[in-house]
């Protein structure tokens, strides 16, 4: 009489396989749950580091850690939020180690970075007269980067990544009320920046072009 295939039961003999059944299961789950968020993590890392090379490293470190500690990930909770939190911690450690100051923005670097991708992602639908619509991706990006980190961060997590306030509060280790007010103030600051960019590069620059 043969028993139904007991997937989880592996005899000591199966050691030939370098990975245990359990490990294989973990891998599969990790791929389904965690690796699907790689684009979001990469974007977040880019926003934090402003450097594709650093972003690569950061995402890789994040996944390495996430894999190691995947056992402690609570199933049913938001895996993307969990990964973001790991990435954020990695980022903080890295900056502390390198004694670089987060928040200090190298505008030339951002510009260069943007120009390298601009051609591939051109939006040709910007014909509206509304000054907001005259803004280019680069300007919005620059305006975002000009915000103090605490504001930029919540805007990124909320507007770009679509996390709930509760998830954001957990990620930035602050109460929800703080998240609310940072979003409020951050958006206000951003609006001022965007208007300035629009004025500078949009409407009043016809003769400069």
């Amino acid at each position: 009489m043969s028993r139904p295939d007991p997937i989880r039961k592996s005899s000591p003999d199966t050691k030939k396989n370098p990975l245990s059944t359990e490990e294989q299961l973990k891998q599969r789950e990790f791929q389904d749950e965690a690796i699907v968020h790689i684009n979001a993590l990469y974007n977040y890392a880019l926003h934090l580091t402003l450097n594709p090379h650093d972003a690569n490293d950061l995402v890789q470190e994040t996944y390495l850690k996430a894999y190691k500690f995947f056992g402690s990930f609570e199933k049913g909770t938001n895996c993307k939020a969990w990964l973001f939190k790991i990435l954020k911690n990695n980022y903080i450690n890295r900056y502390r180690k390198n004694a670089r100051e987060p928040g200090k923005v190298d505008y030339d670097l951002i510009k260069d970075f943007y120009h390298t991708i601009k051609d591939t992602r051109r939006d040709s639908t910007e014909t509206e007269t509304d000054y907001f619509h005259s803004l280019l991706h680069e300007e919005v990006y620059m305006a975002m980067q000009s915000l103090p980190e605490e504001f930029r961060e919540v805007i990124q997590l909320c507007d770009i990544e679509g996390f709930t306030y509760e998830e954001i509060a957990n990620m930035v280790e602050s109460p929800i009320g703080t998240v609310r007010s940072r979003l409020y103030r951050g958006r206000k600051l951003l609006r001022v920046q965007l208007e300035e960019y629009a004025k500078k590069f949009g409407f009043n620059t016809e003769k400069d072009r």
Binding site: N39, Y42, I117, H137, V140, Y141, I155, D159, L190
Partner: peptide, 10 residues
Amino acid sequence: IQEKIVRFKA
């Protein structure tokens, strides 16, 4: 922000 922020592919 949602419309204009470029999303990159890893």
